[in-house]
């Protein structure tokens, strides 16, 4: 449970961090909150020779409004999210989700940027970002670009990040006022990854669903957007039959692994249940 030897770097700007990552190559890893990387290093499943700590970089932490979007700096911690009034007001689903991520100690240290950039299918924020239509700002040797969350995830721990690139910010279009939302997470205990989780953001009009997006956590190699399921509920009043149909459509795209959280059949089944519960709760909240 002790990492192998490594060198530690603490750049003070994104440009310097990028330079370091480029010059040190494959053997370097950026370090944010460290809650995924450090345990892997302790088990020697990850053995980077260089750690590039992003904590010394000013300006990539904090939440701000930019027109119709909300911008979250990559080094913003889950605790910062929970403490942010802007988040509670404009993106309450982020608040609700951050509360079910690990435990307070982890949330003090774990960052939103690290959570979305690592590509761990068990992380809660990626599916949420897909649901919200967020995009990620990536800064690398070739300059700055933006990738939408829905295109970012390619496989377990495999993302659109190019060598030397750092995710510096998350840009989220502010959801319509009066939107309904819910993040339903089934987990074995505090601190665990989801056995299955579903994020729902919707708007209602005249008792019917007007718009809807559904994201799924830890039910495949990547976070999923359950587009078919969302389509099914639009225009309905979320009656039992529709909910079941939506759940079935969501289950269609799930391909979870069998692990200590349960066999595949179970994880898919409760994945459907989470979708139904999230839809119901979101609809009840919609103004």
């Amino acid at each position: 449970m002790i990492p192998g030897p490594f060198s530690y770097h603490r750049p003070s700007s994104v440009a310097d961090a990028v330079k370091l990552l480029v010059s040190l190559g494959d053997e370097a890893r950026p370090l944010a909150g460290g809650h995924s990387l450090i345990p892997m290093m302790k088990l020697r499943l990850a053995t980077p020779e260089h750690l590039v700590d992003l904590h010394g970089i000013a300006g990539i932490k904090g939440v701000r409004r930019d027109g119709s979007t909300i911008v979250i700096g990559a080094m913003t911690t889950q605790h910062d999210l929970l403490a942010s009034e802007m988040i509670s007001k404009s993106l309450p689903i982020l608040h609700e989700t951050a509360l079910v991520i690990a435990d307070p100690q982890v949330r003090y240290r774990g960052t939103v940027g690290g959570n979305v950039a690592n590509g761990d299918p068990g992380n809660d924020m990626p599916a949420l970002m897909m649901t919200l239509g967020a995009s990620y700002t990536l800064q690398g040797p070739g300059g700055t670009r933006s990738v939408v969350a829905r295109d970012f995830y390619q496989g377990a721990y495999f993302t659109s990040l190019e060598p030397g690139e750092i995710l510096t910010a998350i840009v989220i279009p502010a959801p319509a006022s009066g939107h309904g939302y819910a993040y339903e997470k089934l987990k074995r205990k505090v601190g665990d990854y989801a056995t299955a989780a579903a994020a729902v953001v919707l708007t209602m009009s005249g008792g019917k669903v007007a718009t809807c997006a559904i994201g799924l956590t830890n039910l495949s190699e990547t976070p999923l957007l359950a587009e078919e399921a969302a389509k099914i509920v639009i225009g309905t009043g979320l009656d039992e039959a529709t909910l079941k149909k939506a759940a079935a459509a969501a289950e269609e795209i799930m391909s979870p692994a069998a692990d200590g959280r349960g066999p595949i059949e179970y994880r898919k089944s409760v994945g459907g249940i989470m979708v139904m519960r999230a839809l119901k709760r979101a609809a009840a909240r919609a103004g």
Partner: peptide
């Protein structure tokens, strides 16, 4: 718990249930 080849599959507190005050 062991898998059929004898690997321990519950070898850490992630998978070995150690309840917290919440549970």
């Amino acid at each position: 718990r062991y898998d059929e080849t004898g690997n321990v599959v519950t070898g850490s507190f992630m998978d070995f249930f150690m309840p917290t005050a919440v549970e």
